[in-house]
Computed example of a mutant assay.
Amino acid sequence: MKRYLFLAAFLFCCLTSFNTVFAATVDTVLTQSKIMRKDIKAVVIKPASYSADKKFPTLYLLHGAGGKYSEWLNKTPDRETVKRLSDAYGIVVVCPDGGATSWYFDSPEDSTYQYETYITFELVAYIDSHYSTIKDRTARAITGLSMGGHGGLYLGFRHQDVFGACGSMSGGVDIRPFPENWDISKRLGKYSEHPDRWETNTVINLTHLLTPNKLAIIIDCGNNDFFYKVNVDLHDKLLDRNIPHDFIIRPGGHTWEYWDNAINYQMLFFSRYFNRSKS
């Protein structure tokens, strides 16, 4: 009997060790933003297959308003979701701190909120110089939730030389209906005083930058979300312009339960894009 107990304990330890070794690992890094003159944290999730001898595609995963860099690891109902998906698809996932309410613009009002330049140039350069990544737009994607959904499409549309794919989950893809919300006026100035800034920095007005099949796009929003209408409006505008994209509507609201589910669809979409780009 003791022999069997010992064998069971040995097998349990082996399996535990196996799961510990062959699992995604998480780095918390401190990156420097020269344009904002400050250090900014990010988490970098490396898949189990990560090796300096191999190059990996990268997904930049953005948080929402009031959030921070660590949220995708500690706010989802299943805390392991993003790590498990990184493992499954062999993708390096980068979750930067985007400021509480940056909206991922370069703010004309506040020099300490220049997050478009930080994410697109400073952070990408840091990741590509410190990690074993494929340094090409066809191996980079960007997405996020809520404010980060706006950021995913905003940066993806505006920087197609950097990102080959982009997405949004419950994204604020048209900021104009919300002139008093989420500190947007602190970043762009009041809508009544600077309507031009609002018009040129809302995602729905950036579709003129797109050409069919150049950028892979996925948009996901729950039918009970307060951003539902603006997402449907963006979908319709993309259809009118003949821009291919995946558009997902499911029951749900503006919740972590929804995003914990949505990220599964998004990472599958990006993995398929990365694999097609290799062939």
Rank of each mutant, 00 (worst) to 15 (best):
D53G: 08
Y69Q: 06
L85A: 04
R158E: 01
T31M: 15
D136W: 07
T101K: 00
H63E: 07
K34C: 01
I184K: 08
Q160K: 08
G66Y: 05
N275C: 06
R84D: 14
R250P: 08
G167C: 10
H254M: 08
R140E: 07
S107G: 13
N275Y: 11
K229A: 13
L239I: 12
N201E: 13
K2R: 14
V173H: 09
G164S: 04
I249Q: 10
G152D: 14
L153V: 04
I243M: 07
R176L: 15
L188D: 11
M1S: 14
F121K: 14
V92H: 04
Q160H: 12
I45K: 03
T58H: 02
D260S: 04
T133W: 01
Y228Q: 10
V230E: 10
Q114M: 15
H245A: 05
D183A: 12
I91V: 13
K83L: 00
S192I: 12
T117H: 11
K75I: 00
T133L: 01
S192H: 02
G172M: 08
G148I: 03
K34S: 06
L234Q: 01
L215M: 09
F12S: 10
C166N: 10
E193H: 09
S279C: 00
C13K: 06
L215S: 06
I217R: 01
A52Q: 12
I127E: 06
G144R: 01
A24V: 04
H159M: 03
I40M: 08
K38W: 03
S129F: 13
I45L: 05
M147T: 12
T112N: 12
A9D: 07
T211L: 11
I40V: 11
S192D: 13
Y191R: 12
I45F: 03
R176C: 14
H194D: 15
T133C: 01
I40P: 08
F22T: 04
D233P: 01
M1K: 02
T76F: 14
G151S: 14
K75L: 06
E180C: 12
I218T: 13
Y273M: 09
L238C: 10
E109N: 10
F22C: 05
T28G: 03
S51D: 05
R241P: 10
L85C: 04
L268S: 09
N201D: 12
V21Q: 14
D196M: 00
Y228P: 11
A52W: 07
T143M: 03
F12E: 06
P244V: 03
D136F: 07
M169R: 00
G98A: 01
R250G: 10
L145P: 09
C14P: 06
F56T: 03
Y4Q: 14
P177D: 01
W103H: 13
A24R: 01
R272K: 00
T25V: 09
F18T: 02
H235F: 13
Y115V: 04
S33V: 04
G90S: 00
R272W: 00
R137E: 10
N74Y: 03
R197C: 04
D220H: 10
Y69C: 11
S129D: 15
R250Q: 12
T58R: 02
D128Y: 03
E71Y: 14
T143W: 01
R250A: 15
T76C: 12
I35Y: 13
Y131S: 13
P77E: 00
R197Q: 10
F157D: 07
E193G: 07
G164Y: 00
